[in-house]
Computed example of a mutant assay.
Amino acid sequence: MLNIKERIDEYKKTIIESNFDKYEDWNMKSNKLIGTLYIKQKLDYGFHIYYIHEPSDSNPLAGKNGTVSEMFYDLRNKVYWVKRNLKEVKFSVRNVDSIFPKDSKKIVLIFDKLSTPNNKGLYDAALKFLGAMGNEQTEMFGRFFHRLITEHSYFEILYKAKIEIK
């Protein structure tokens, strides 16, 4: 019987050896790999992804052994969850945010990877509308994904109907 660390290592290995489309997240200053996003499935209304953080002494999200996060996001059926190291964690802004890069240039690349021809531009428009509302100064990736599915799922329908939301 495998212990939890061995199970997580096997899980990471299976993901890494998959044929999933991937995006490597590099720290441009240090030229170090931060982590890799693996796209298991992308739909017109969501996605199923994994993010494997590289081990790090300085990044608490990665930890000394690295972590693997999994996120399932289905706007149409309002089904969503996040797992970290095989355990489900709360679907919160912080937990969603920990999966995605913080750099706005990288976010554009991620949106391209997660999009289908039928939802092209949805995530970018939703980020602009939901990423920072009211007195919030900074658009946050995790905050927009959290709001899109938990409070503003109608945004997808309006966007696809080509109704502009400001």
Rank of each mutant, 00 (worst) to 15 (best):
L158P: 09
H48R: 11
Q41N: 13
N135M: 08
L148W: 13
V68W: 12
I110K: 02
S92Y: 07
I157R: 09
N31T: 05
K128T: 03
K166V: 08
R147P: 03
L114E: 04
K83W: 01
N31S: 09
K160H: 09
L127A: 03
L37M: 07
I34H: 13
G66E: 06
D74Q: 08
F141C: 07
L37I: 10
L109H: 04
I99N: 13
T14E: 15
M133N: 13
D25R: 10
Y50V: 06
N95Y: 02
L43C: 03
D9P: 01
K105A: 12
D44W: 04
A161M: 04
N119T: 00
E6M: 10
G134Y: 09
S98Q: 14
M71I: 01
P101G: 13
K42I: 02
K106M: 09
M71E: 15
K5E: 13
E164M: 12
V68E: 10
T67E: 11
L43G: 03
P117D: 12
L86W: 11
S69L: 08
V82K: 02
N27R: 09
T150R: 01
E139F: 14
A125C: 05
I99Q: 04
G142F: 05
A161L: 10
Y11M: 05
E70Y: 07
I39Y: 04
I149L: 00
I15E: 11
V108H: 13
L122P: 05
I39D: 00
K120D: 15
R143L: 14
D44T: 05
V89T: 08
M28A: 11
K162P: 12
S69I: 00
G66S: 08
F144I: 08
K90A: 02
T116D: 03
K12P: 01
S30D: 12
V93H: 02
F129R: 07
A126C: 01
S56E: 02
E139N: 08
F47S: 04
Y154N: 13
G121K: 00
S92F: 06
L61V: 03
L148Y: 10
M71V: 11
I34Q: 11
I157E: 14
D21A: 06
P60V: 06
W81M: 08
I110S: 00
